[in-house]
Design a protein around this nucleic acid. Structure first.
Length: 907
DNA sequence: CGACTGGAAATAGTT
DNA sequence: CCAACTATTTCCAGT
């Protein structure tokens, strides 16, 4: 990870990158300098960047890392973030950057810290990384400049991004043809640019931006790609269907670290060989469990982001770094094809793309832009064609975590999609648009926008695991057209991710009925072969619809908002057999247990078991117990469970545990988070709705029932102010929800350790700003735009005040002692929305979180909720998870770092 | 005829 | 290395 981070930085620097070796420290140092440089380039961003870096090492790093690491992902996460920012700025949209920001966000308080941690950690901590690095191909990401070898680079996957597009083309493209074109589509990646309007590149930033842009074009992909995202792409093309794709490998694939299956078609080999393994560990498979924990994964994202960033710089470079892709399958095309070569060039970007792409990609702008030419994309009358006013040049990468509301604006999913939607393979016909539970279709609305200018609503398929929200490598949104479709749309490729752009018209009250979006399943084997891809497809069948809107502000900035739907199970089998927990009446309970927890979902059986589990950071089980299920009240969609007492009735701080519904050996739901509260603790955990009653706290009662009622909807009650409950989703959605939490500010704090924020705070400020810069994209000030871009968290932090978080602004300052911005951030989003915004992405990925925290940590709750209703604030306290000690240490570190950093950067 | 679907057989990958 | 399972992907057939 760290490496990646470094790289990232370097990228930022644009110019010079220094190779980072792996030493953490080294990296740091480098960074600083870089940062400096960068500033020149980008200026702002940098500044923060540095901070970030510094911080990273320090604090969190370790904790977080380690944790994360364990979880699976390794580290990665965090570091990335910082990188991202940079990238962000540079890229414009690229994508990747996003994360970073997030981290930054923390800075406000926490943010900085976090990021730092990551980085730091990464280096030192994970051996693997190192290993990988060495082993792996190197990426030279550095832009042009230096090459760093990133060990992980591969891991990041980003690389893949590039090509991906190509792949797409293959099948999907075909079908879709319209939109994409074959090759071209890819290019689009850069969505922002892509989007018609965007001129993204241009970017405010100026020259630099240009570069970025250009790069971006291609580069971005890679970089970003979010890790995951990345590409699969290449693959897309895919192979021949004839045989089962999947098996290309024949053997089995082992995900092992390499992630990619070992197998690969010969053809691919090229790249592979070298890299093959790129992936690296992190990804590792993501076994179910893993998911849970994994919060860490963010890492990947982060990494990705970082990569992206790097890429940005020099596309070419990127390519280098990137491994290659593995196969492309494009059938049609040539089965063989593919391959991108490696690194070295290949990629130039992401570009790698297949041959096809290349050109396109490369072109900086062109691509995207559609130029009409390139794409076939049908253009709708709407705006598509029009260039939009969009000002902002660059848009945040798809793996960035963005808030659902900022200032007066709030993007909400008014009608959620059904929890199951069987995705179709390329070999099949469409299985139709995603529907709503009511039988209609999902509905998304932007509140607070009073301008007459139409906007574009972007939709892509994101992940629904515990990690930060990012584009799903194994699923793509599929544009549905026909008589029955009332909503116009057009596709663009952003990185390896297909993005559906839907007009949001004032005349429709900025409301859009999403009846034009289906979900395409890509063969696991195709995606897993991508270079950068680290995730595995097996049992990774849940997705979320992610909506984004970019609002230009008078001041030239762009506010980017994002809302993610509840998780959607896309596999036929899983939908029929696996238990799915959509909601839970309470997120927490006193350690004494005894209360009834109402779970609502699907596929529950009379003999379904509910198991509570507590895992250590390293993954081993600390405690596991089966809860009593009320079989008399059994329903396939409802389970009444008696909350088991926690193993230790004397906990002084909240304890995060998980529980899952089990219908049999391998038929388990995803882990659901749950928190045991200490009697004394006034802590605020949150739970949105519910009841949680901590011992002390009152409330509890409601729980289940309340939820129950609520279930479908948002949690009704928010917590009280007093409590601070978080609103999280009550339930968290089964799967995904979790993530959310993480994202939530809370998470950050934690990661950072709560302390950080606080402590860190002092130093941090700078950092925060930096982020904004990155945001730069948005030109303006720090405030909103940037904020928005960032994750909510960030946003809030950053601008906290300004941003206004979602109107409510509610921030719960209280929670965080520090009052660090960080905390606030979180809240903002949620609060705001009346509706409930979907959890947004979970966002947040923050990498930061420690494993523990991340997962379940209470904090998470906050965000999640998303449900607006609750505004509740909740702030969790960090302390809970993190130990004070830890925090203290971190803080110290941070301080030290900061001081040093400041020097660098400023200097 | 074509877009959806629901089912399920054929394959693959795990244990 | 095989068998039993499980998960994924391709096919079929009815609307």
């Amino acid at each position: 990870m760290q490496n990646s981070c470094l790289q990232v930085f370097s990228k930022f620097n644009f110019g010079s990158l220094v190779p980072s070796a792996g030493g953490n420290e080294t990296g740091l140092h480098l960074i600083a300098p870089l940062a400096t440089n960068m500033k020149s380039a980008e200026e702002d961003a940098f500044s923060y960047t540095p901070n970030v870096t510094l911080s990273l090492p320090i604090s969190m790093g370790n904790p977080c890392l380690s944790t994360q690491y364990h979880n699976l992902q390794s580290s990665s996460i965090i570091p990335m973030s910082s990188c991202h920012q940079d990238s962000y700025a540079l890229h414009n949209n690229g994508g990747a950057p996003g994360y970073y920001l997030t981290p930054n966000l923390r800075p406000n308080g926490a943010p900085a810290l976090e990021s730092p941690r990551i980085e730091i950690t990464a280096y030192g901590q994970f051996p693997e990384d190192e290993m990988e690095e060495s082993a792996l191909p190197m990426v030279k990401r550095v832009n042009s400049i230096v090459t760093l070898t990133l060990p992980n680079a591969d891991g990041y996957r980003d690389p893949s991004c590039l090509s991906p597009a190509s792949s797409l083309s293959s099948r999907s493209c075909n079908s879709e043809a319209s939109s994409y074109e074959s090759g071209f589509s890819y290019n689009y990646d850069n969505s922002p640019q892509n989007s018609p309007w965007q001129s993204p590149c241009v970017s405010p930033k100026g020259s630099s931006s240009l570069h970025s842009c250009t790069h971006a074009g291609s580069p971005r992909h890679s970089p970003s790609g979010s890790p995951r995202t990345s590409v699969a792409d290449e693959s897309w093309p895919a192979p021949p269907r004839g045989s089962r794709p999947g098996s290309p490998c024949n053997g089995k694939r082992k995900y092992s670290f390499n992630g990619a299956p070992t197998c690969r078609h010969p053809s691919y080999s090229p790249g592979n060989s070298p890299t093959v393994s790129p992936q690296g560990s992190p990804r590792v498979s993501v076994p179910d469990e893993a998911w849970l924990a994994n919060t860490n994964q963010y890492t990947n994202s982060a990494i990705v982001a970082a990569i992206n960033a790097l890429t940005t710089d020099g596309m070419a470079d990127l390519s280098d770094s990137v491994p290659l892709k593995s196969r492309k399958t494009s059938l049609e095309h040539s089965p063989a094809m593919s391959l991108k070569v490696e690194p070295g060039q290949e990629e130039p970007g992401p570009g790698e793309v297949g041959q096809d792409d290349y050109p396109a990609h490369r072109m900086p702008f062109k691509k995207e832009n559609y130029c009409g030419g390139f794409l076939d994309v049908p253009q709708h009358p709407y705006p598509w064609s029009k260039p939009k006013p969009y000002i902002s040049p660059s848009l945040p990468a798809l793996d960035w975590q963005l808030p659902s509301c900022s200032g007066p604006y709030s993007l909400q999913i008014e009608v959620q999609p059904k929890s199951h939607h069987r995705a179709h393979y390329e070999t099949e016909g469409s299985r139709g648009a995603v529907k709503a539970l009511s039988g209609g279709h999902p509905v998304v609305q932007l509140y607070g926008y009073m301008e007459s200018e139409p906007l574009t609503l972007q939709l892509f398929i994101g992940t629904a695991d515990d990690r930060l929200l990012r584009p799903h490598a194994f699923y793509q949104v599929h544009r549905i057209t026909g008589k029955t479709v009332s909503t116009a749309s057009h596709e663009v490729m952003q990185s390896n991710t297909k993005v559906l752009e839907i007009p949001l018209l004032p005349e429709n009250n900025m409301r859009a009925i999403i009846d034009c979006a289906g979900i395409l399943k890509l063969r696991n084997s195709d995606i897993e072969l991508r270079k950068g891809e680290t995730d595995i497809g097996r049992k990774n069948t849940r997705v979320r619809m992610v909506f984004r809107v970019h609002i230009n502000q008078p001041n030239g900035r762009t506010v980017s908002l994002q809302a993610a739907s509840n998780p959607i199970e896309c596999s036929q089998r899983s939908a029929q057999e696996l238990p799915l927990v959509e909601k839970q009446s309470a997120d927490s309970s006193p350690a004494t247990g005894g209360k009834t927890l109402v779970l609502s979902g699907h596929n529950f059986l009379p003999d379904s078991k509910v198991v509570f589990v507590e895992k250590a950071q390293d993954g081993h089980h600390l405690w596991e117990t089966e809860a009593k299920v009320d079989k008399d009240s059994f329903k396939s969609t409802t389970l009444l469970v008696e909350i088991p007492p926690y193993r230790n009735q004397r906990i002084s701080s909240p304890v995060q545990v998980n529980f899952y519904v089990c219908n049999g050996k391998r038929k388990r739901s995803q882990y659901q988070r749950f928190t045991y509260l200490s009697p004394n603790v006034p802590i605020i955990k949150t739970e949105p709705n519910d009841d949680y009653e901590p011992q002390g706290a009152p409330r509890l009662t409601m729980r289940s029932k309340a939820y129950y009622g609520q279930l479908g909807v948002t949690p009704a009650m928010p917590a009280d102010p007093g409590h601070c409950l978080v609103g999280g989703y009550p339930s968290s959605s089964p799967s995904s929800s979790p993530k959310l939490h993480d994202l939530s500010p809370a998470a950050y704090p934690k990661c950072l350790s709560g302390g950080q924020s606080h402590h860190a705070v002092p130093g941090i400020p700078a950092i925060q700003e930096a982020p904004s810069r990155p945001m730069g994209v948005h030109p303006g000030s720090p405030d909103h735009a940037p904020l928005a871009m960032l994750q909510p968290q960030v946003a809030s932090h950053l601008s906290s005040p300004g941003t206004g978080d979602c109107s409510h602004g509610y921030r719960p300052p209280a929670l965080f002692p520090n009052g660090s911005p960080a905390s606030s951030p979180v809240s903002p989003e949620t609060p705001f929305s009346p509706a409930y915004s979907p959890p947004q992405a979970p966002p947040a990925g923050s990498p930061h979180l420690t494993p523990v925290a991340a997962r379940s940590s209470p904090p998470t709750l906050l965000r999640e909720d998303s449900s607006p209703p609750t505004l509740a604030v909740t702030v969790k306290q960090e302390p809970q998870e993190l130990d004070q000690m830890y925090l203290d240490d971190v803080n110290e570190i941070i301080r030290n770092d900061l001081s040093s950093i400041s020097v660098h950067s400023h200097a």
